[in-house]
Design a protein around this nucleic acid. Structure first.
Lengths: 244, 244
DNA sequence: TCCAAAGCAAGAGCAGTGATCTCGTAATGG
DNA sequence: CCATTACGAGATCACTGCTCTTGCTTTGGA
């Protein structure tokens, strides 16, 4: 009674949290497709219709879980990055990439929820954008730090890509060269290609020892955005591509 | 009389095809999650239970659609490649990549079926492997052709990746250097990262002019596996060896 | 030619789903 | 103190995948 907001309001957020917890539990067990409002309600000792007082539809419950998943991934990535915040940019880059992979391996169904096939007819509301951006912002920050002083030259962009590259740079990191921002966006997508292929079974019976494979692949990705290993800096370029 | 197999067998394959066609139609409209056996049967003027004579379960119908999708994608990619079979390897590489993207944009739900989140509890039977491998084999062939004569040097692999790289090379292309095969597998996954991000909406409000962006990204991917432009047109050579 | 065996569609039925509506009860706050 | 509001229960609707039984039709061997 003495609580300012009243028992009702408190019960509401408690029940809301309980619903999300149970839904997340079922999600981790059977995946999003088998998430059942009735099963959640049953497990919580309520009747299915009562759930609609908290989430207007199954899709709204999914949206809540999506935001939580993005935030969980973002928090993990940020925490991993914080531990190596003073290291070389390439080290920070690979650390964040590996954190993404580890979170994905630990939360496969939640990963599928946010980076897998979208539910047909479902469009992610704008509410998800901030949470969804956290990893991307982290990567941008790393690359920005690396290019702060000595910029590493990237191959020139084809002319047809010029306008789009400038638009990307304007939107995401006006202080970085368009070629770098373009490479960064591509690397961002490619990172999730690597993670997704491993998680969704495309690497089964193909790649066995996945950790070093992933580590090397994301290091190459880092090179593609201009990050270099400290010992690699000999010639000022990255160690060689098409080799001569 | 003339029909050796009898009317019954013929009717069976006809009905089977009709079911798959209608299922594919519904797939393209509402996505895999909303594919309903009853709706397919209704549309075909039969009763739902009759469908089980042709596909023992909904998942088996999905499996059939998955194999068809892999084959459709593979056929498109192979056809696109055949048109430039005599061109430079890098040109063939980007052509195949663009064919993959175009097929995906044209068949978003089928793409989601084969490269999106797997259906929980559903494991793709080994039957899908040959169809699923077609694009990969195409890419391997292109890289093999490019390395036939003059091998292009890639950066050395880290020691920890050595065994896995050798295993990959043994399994996929024993005639290619392990570093190349490793880069190829990574590029393969990364290609689908690019396509998936565009298709699943991750590029919305980020990348606007996606075709040149994609073209450039897969060209870079090609460089990563050792393919080079004969001589760069227009804006002058890629600055790779320049690097300064 | 005949007839048992097999293939097949229909229909009823089961257990489950998301969603909606009504109705009595309990907390809330002016 | 009492009208308003929030809430949970229950019934109900239109669906879903799937199973089983019941007849009809085609098939292929004797």
């Amino acid at each position: 009674m003495s609580t300012a907001k009243g028992a009702r309001a408190r019960a509401r957020i408690e029940v809301t949290a309980a619903i999300k917890d149970e839904a997340r539990r079922q999600l981790a067990e059977d995946g999003a497709a088998k998430l059942s409002l009735r099963a959640v309600a049953r497990e919580l000792g309520m009747v299915s219709s009562a759930l609609y007082r908290y989430f207007p539809s199954r899709d709204d419950l999914l949206t809540a879980l999506i935001i939580d998943a993005y935030d969980s991934l973002g928090a993990d990535a940020e925490a991993a990055h914080a531990k190596v915040a003073d290291a070389e940019p390439i080290r920070r880059w690979t650390t964040v990439c590996e954190a993404v992979r580890e979170w994905a391996l630990g939360h496969p169904h939640e990963y599928a929820l946010i980076y897998g096939s979208p539910v047909p007819g479902y469009v992610a509301p704008a509410t998800t954008v901030p949470a969804a951006s956290r990893v991307g912002l982290l990567l941008i920050g790393i690359v920005r730090g690396a290019h702060q002083g000595a910029g590493v030259a990237l191959p020139p962009l084809p002319a047809e890509l010029g306008p789009e590259a400038r638009r990307l740079a304007d939107d995401l990191a006006p202080d970085l060269p368009p070629a770098v921002v373009t490479a960064l966006v591509a690397a961002w997508a490619q990172l999730y290609g690597l993670v997704g292929f491993e998680l969704f079974g495309q690497f089964n019976r193909v790649v066995e020892d996945r950790e070093p494979f992933f580590r090397h692949a994301v290091a190459q990705l880092g090179h593609g955005v201009g990050l270099v290993f400290p010992q690699d800096t000999g010639t000022g370029g990255r160690g060689s591509r098409a080799g001569s």
